[in-house]
Design a protein around this nucleic acid. Structure first.
Lengths: 199, 199
DNA sequence: AAGTATGGATAGTGGGACTCTCCACTATCT
DNA sequence: AGATAGTGGAGAGTCCCACTATCCATACTT
């Protein structure tokens, strides 16, 4: 990490300023390094924007927030935020999402960023002429539930709030990347079994 | 879609040029519109760069490529390509990935982009101090297998090559977004059940 | 004939993530 | 003590990327 980059992060509010020991000397501790690693993980692997990371950081540092609310903020802020794309089939997709949430018995708000993101994605599928993809939505939801259970199980290990929150953030963002990569590998395998020729 | 944007896509090789009926008139058909929708889906929902999309398009349009190879190209080109980030714990992570592939019996190349992406993500986790997250890797892999099976099952519906290929591309990219959103929703639900207070 | 649109190509725009440059001052080397 | 290197702070500049604007000669439209 170059010094100017760190300065930039401090200015952008991703990193707390060091403790000034004199007008132009500041000292940094392990906490700064840890925070820096968090920022890099979100940036490089999670692909978040600096602005999104700032939101997440602010939420993480706010001790007022209950753990559950914080998870909500994080999950919301971490949605990749697909291009504007208003689209017109979006209404239908929203209903579909609401129906899914109901049928699954999920305690989730149909207006949450995640739900909206799902609606946008489904609408895009429909528009691209692959509406039939929704056939597999059930299988996806099953898998998502399994993954979420695993996530929460992991999170429950960390009792200290600071650690807990961070594990949620990291797990959510890096977890996406990990799952995505695993899916590719599993697809490769499945494709090989289905279409693979000799050799 | 504005005209200049379409011109831009044509120049970038994302879209075939229209058929010239005179020096300055060209006609476009349904295929162009379809391709345009594909590009928009990859761009908006998939978050791919124009360069990645071009690679995918080229692969899709190459009739020489076997379906399986094409899937490989697509899956490879569609990897989000996390920031450079060489890191140093990467070697250990690569071994971990290779071990996972072996233990799962996956027919996948440990050097493939997906495997590399997984290694990078795991290394980032380790560096961020959340190496214990790998505890849940098994659960993730199970879920990934289930999703991949569903994907291939869907893909198998489409017999026409053109359609098949497109469904793979769309399914892979938009599927990521859909799963990600579903995971957020399921996490919200799980978190509510675990930490939710009254009200 | 007037007005508008088109394909093609080059240059410019706006946003995002840095990176450079300046400044006055401090730490450290010798 | 003097030379050299580094620091925090802040504005400007750079680079990349997905567009967008402008030009031009020509071709549809009315």
């Amino acid at each position: 990490m170059s010094v100017p980059t760190i300065k930039f992060y401090v200015r952008e509010g991703l990193l707390p300023a060091g403790e000034l020991t004199s007008p132009n000397q500041a000292s940094y501790g392990e906490a700064h390094v840890q925070r820096l690693r968090l920022v890099r993980a979100l940036l490089d692997v999670g692909g978040l924007s600096v602005a999104s990371i700032r939101e997440v950081i602010v939420a993480v540092d706010d001790p007022e927030r209950s753990v559950h609310k914080l998870l909500g903020t994080v999950a919301g802020g971490l949605v990749p935020s697909y291009g504007r794309e208003p689209g017109d089939g979006i209404e239908e997709a929203r209903k579909q999402v609401a129906a899914l949430i109901t049928s699954r018995g999920w305690r989730a708000n149909p207006g949450s960023p995640a739900a909206e993101a799902l609606a946008v994605a489904l609408a895009a599928l429909e528009e691209a002429g692959h509406g039939a993809f929704t056939e597999v939505l059930g299988a996806y939801a099953d898998a998502a539930e399994a993954v979420a259970r695993a996530d929460l199980g992991y999170v429950a290990h960390n009792v200290a709030r600071e650690q807990l929150v961070e594990s949620v953030v990291v797990g959510t963002v890096v977890g996406d990347a990990i799952f995505s990569a695993l899916r590719r590998l599993a697809q490769t395998d499945a494709s090989d079994r289905m279409f693979g020729e000799a050799t």
